[in-house]
Design a protein around this nucleic acid. Structure first.
Lengths: 212, 212
DNA sequence: TGTACATCAGTGAACGCGCGTTCACTGATGTAC
DNA sequence: TGTACATCAGTGAACGCGCGTTCACTGATGTAC
C-alpha cells in the first residue's frame, strides 16, 4: 500500500559508467581525493564493488576516464567563455582566464585530478591528449591579442607566464593555503587577472585592445 | 672473520625523529606521496613499525612535522637568496623568485606536502604559522621595490600576482604536465620570471631598479 | 509471433595484503642518594 | 664508586579494516532464424 517502490532497481543500470564518474566527483567533494577507491565509488553509485572494474579495468582507468571527462568540460568552458564575449581580443582573453579560475572553483574534483598524471599510470598519453586542446585555446587567443607577425616563441613565453599565474592562483585556492590566509577568493582572482593583463599590455606587440 | 658487523645496531637510535623525517622524503621521492605510511617510513628507517607513532603520535602528526621542517628550510632558502645578492632591490627580489622555483625542484618531497593542509588535519594552524613567514619575506622585499608610501593593498595585490605566477610554475613542474609538453624547465622558469618582472616594472610606483 | 543462442552488465564470495592503532613488554639512559 | 629507581626509546604481537583483483555466476537484452 506504499507508493510504487523506487528500490526495485533494475538489473541493468542504463548508464553506469557515467554514474560511476559522478560518484568519483561526489566522493572527492565529500571525503577528499584520498578517499576515492573502486569500492567507495561503487558504494556511492549503489552498485556491486566489482562493477567499476568491469567498465574501467582498474583504478587508474577510472581516474583516467574521470580526468578525460574533466578536460573535455574544461575545454568547452574555455570555448564558451571566448565565444560568449563580443568585444576586443583582450576582453575575450580575460574572459577565458576568468573561466579557468571559475572552473577550478566550481569543479574542484575534476581540477584536483586533471593535472596529476601520477594518479593514472598507463593512461597518461591519452589524458594528456585530451588536455592539450585547452592550452592551445589559450595560446591561440593570446596570439590574436598580438601583432600578426609576433614570433612564436614570444607568444609561448607570454602564454606560460599567463598560464602559470592563473594556474597558480587556482591551485592556491583549491589546496587551501589562500583561504587560510584570510584572503577572499574574489579579491585574489581580480588581483591575478589584473596582474596578467597589465603585463600583457606592457608588451610592445600588444594589439589586444583594438576593436576587432 | 667478516669485518666489524655494522648490523649490531644499538637499541637507541640517536636521532630517530630526524631519521624518520628523512625517510618520509625518501619514500616520496622513490614511491610517491601516496606510498607514505607509518609502516613504510619505519621500514625505510630500519626501525619497528610502531616507532613513528611513538614520536609523532599519528600519521597526520608525522606529515605536519615534515611540512614544518620544509617551511623552515624554505624560509631559510628565501632569506639566503635575498642576502646572497648585493644589488638593487629588484635583483634581490628576482633572486628570491628563482630560489622559490629552485626549492620546489630540488625538494619536491617537501614542496609536495607543504601546501596541502588536508594531509595533516588537526595540525593546520601550527604548520600555517611556520609557512606564513615565507610569504611575508616576499611581501617585504616587494615593498622595498616600490615607493615608500605605496599603499598596503597595492603591494599585496602585486605580491599575489607574483606569488601565483611563481607558485603556478612550480606546481606545473612538480606535477608533471609541463615536462609532458616537452618544455624545458629552464625556459619556462625564465619565461615566468621575465613575465613577473616586466609586470612589476610597468607599475607606476616601481623603484626596484634604483641603486640602494 | 516464437524460440534458441550469443553477448553484455552486474553480482557476490573469496583471496591475500598493507594499513593505523593499541598495548604490554624490554632495553638503555640518566639521576638521586 | 655503587645501587635503586624513574624515565624514555623502541619492540613485536595482535586487532580489525578497507582495499584491489579475480572468478564463476546470474540476470537482462538483443539478434538470427
Amino acid at each position: 500500500v506504499t507508493g510504487p517502490n523506487a528500490s526495485q532497481r533494475p538489473y541493468h543500470h542504463g548508464d553506469l559508467p557515467a554514474a560511476l564518474l559522478d560518484a568519483v566527483a561526489g566522493t572527492i567533494e565529500t571525503d577528499g581525493l584520498e578517499a576515492v577507491s573502486l569500492r567507495a565509488v561503487a558504494r556511492r553509485a549503489g552498485v556491486s564493488h566489482a562493477a567499476p572494474a568491469h567498465h574501467f579495468g582498474d583504478k587508474a582507468g577510472l581516474l583516467a576516464a574521470f580526468a578525460t571527462q574533466g578536460f573535455e568540460a574544461f575545454t568547452a568552458a574555455l570555448e564558451d567563455a571566448r565565444a560568449g564575449v563580443d568585444g576586443t581580443p583582450a576582453e575575450r582573453f580575460e574572459a577565458m582566464g576568468r573561466a579557468y579560475l571559475r572552473f577550478a572553483e566550481e569543479h574542484r574534483p575534476w581540477f584536483e585530478v586533471m593535472f596529476r598524471p601520477e594518479l593514472m599510470p598507463g593512461h597518461v598519453d591519452h589524458v594528456h591528449l585530451a588536455g592539450s586542446g585547452s592550452f592551445s585555446l589559450l595560446v591561440d587567443q593570446l596570439a590574436r591579442c598580438l601583432v600578426p607577425d609576433a614570433p612564436e616563441d614570444e607568444v609561448v613565453a607570454l602564454a606560460f607566464g599567463t598560464w602559470a599565474a592563473v594556474h597558480g592562483m587556482a591551485t592556491l585556492r583549491v589546496d587551501g593555503p589562500l583561504t587560510k590566509m584570510g584572503v577572499s577568493g574574489d579579491e585574489a582572482v581580480r588581483a591575478v587577472l589584473d596582474f596578467v593583463l597589465a603585463r600583457l599590455r606592457a608588451h610592445p606587440g600588444w594589439r589586444g585592445d583594438d576593436a576587432t
